[in-house]
């Protein structure tokens, strides 16, 4: 009896350590401990809620990117898409802001984003152009045209109702010094998106088909999956998340600027990859992606709290990415070697 339970315990641990998420989680704990030792302000509810709010933007983009990476592609045009959708809603808010509400703003931004994402999907599917090249191109097309049309102007001065969501909380605490903090509705929105994404990826035929396509697209075609529809969904969904992200960005900073997002696309790819998704497709999870975003968030925040100059932020992120992908590449190599050994009596 005792042997049995300890065996079960061993397999659970083994299973845990075969998962990439475990390592990311451990990295988060270790970094968290170091930062807390240096500056106890890190591990306060106030700081944690603050971080979750300000990284909701990256987190939302990351959810979309996760789908694209699982399908075997990559999309770096989403920042340009988000810039366009941001402009569209900003212009609408400034012109007839009183007739809009938060739902219609999200719907409009999402709808435009889906359209732009679908353009990516059509190019990739019909002309068989690598997704990285396609989206490098569309990134420039979307961003270039937008900047020409918008003349690079910053837009601000949105209606008051639009500003209030920044200070809206699902639940709230009041600190000893009188400031209040809590779970922002923006964070909650990101969490809901992740829940939906998790459900879609794990419990729908659509989600499993995306994994299948990323694992082996030739087989997926033979097995009767509609690859065009899957591509449309994946890149359309990335566009949707880009649109939602642009609204979150507008809510957070109450300004829409043409150059606030473009250039950050690879940071999002890095977060999702840190979370265990591979660029060859077929792997990745919502939990891992969340942990990847959290890891990047606490590193950025931790460096500030430890009074490391902001210039070092990228150095740390770059190093962590290289160590992380290096370690998982090494693990893959070792397990592949183990598998090839055959049995000899």
């Amino acid at each position: 009896m005792t042997i049995k339970t300890s065996n079960a315990g061993v397999t659970v641990i083994k299973k845990l350590f075969s998962r990439h998420e475990t390592f990311v989680f451990l990295a988060i704990v270790i970094f968290g401990l170091i930062i807390t030792v240096v500056n106890p302000d890190f591990l306060t509810l106030e700081n944690v809620f603050d971080l979750l709010k300000s990284y909701a933007l990256m987190g939302t983009f990351a959810v979309g990117m996760l789908f694209v990476l699982i399908s075997g592609g990559i999309d770096i045009s989403f920042t340009a898409i988000a810039t366009i959708t941001g402009y569209v809603i900003a212009v609408l808010l400034l012109q007839n802001g009183e007739q809009l509400n938060i739902v219609s703003v999200f719907a409009i931004a999402g709808g435009v984003g889906v359209l732009l994402g679908i353009i990516n999907a059509l190019i990739i599917y019909y002309f068989n152009i690598p997704s990285i090249i396609t989206t490098i191109a569309t990134l420039n097309i979307y961003y270039g045209l937008l900047t020409v049309i918008s003349k690079g102007k910053w837009l601000y001065g949105f209606p008051a109702w639009f500003g209030q969501y920044t200070q809206m909380y699902v639940f709230k605490f009041t600190a000893a010094n009188g400031t209040s903090y809590g779970l922002s509705v923006i964070t909650a929105f990101w969490f809901v998106l992740m829940l939906i994404a998790w459900f879609v990826l794990r419990y729908t035929v659509l989600g499993r088909s995306i994994y299948a396509m990323g694992g082996n697209s030739a087989s997926a075609k033979r097995a009767g999956f509609n690859l065009l529809r899957l591509n449309l969904f994946v890149y359309g969904f990335m566009g949707l998340m880009a649109g939602f992200g642009s609204v979150i960005q507008a809510l957070l900073v109450q300004t829409v600027a043409p150059n606030s997002l473009v250039g950050k696309e690879l940071d999002v790819v890095a977060a999702v990859v840190l979370g265990g998704a591979s660029l060859t497709g077929g792997t990745g999870s919502v939990l891992g992606t969340f942990l990847g975003v959290v890891l990047i968030a606490i590193m950025g925040n931790g460096l500030t709290l430890m009074r490391v100059p902001a210039f070092w932020y990228k150095v740390v992120i770059g190093t962590v990415i290289l160590i992380s992908v290096g370690a998982s590449a090494y693990r893959r190599k070792v397990s592949a070697r183990r598998r090839t050994i055959i049995e000899v009596e």
């Binding site: 694992g215 082996n216 087989s219 033979r222």
Partner: peptide
Amino acid sequence: YQDLSLFPNL
């Protein structure tokens, strides 16, 4: 088919 058409990641 000869290549089995399976999904290694599933």
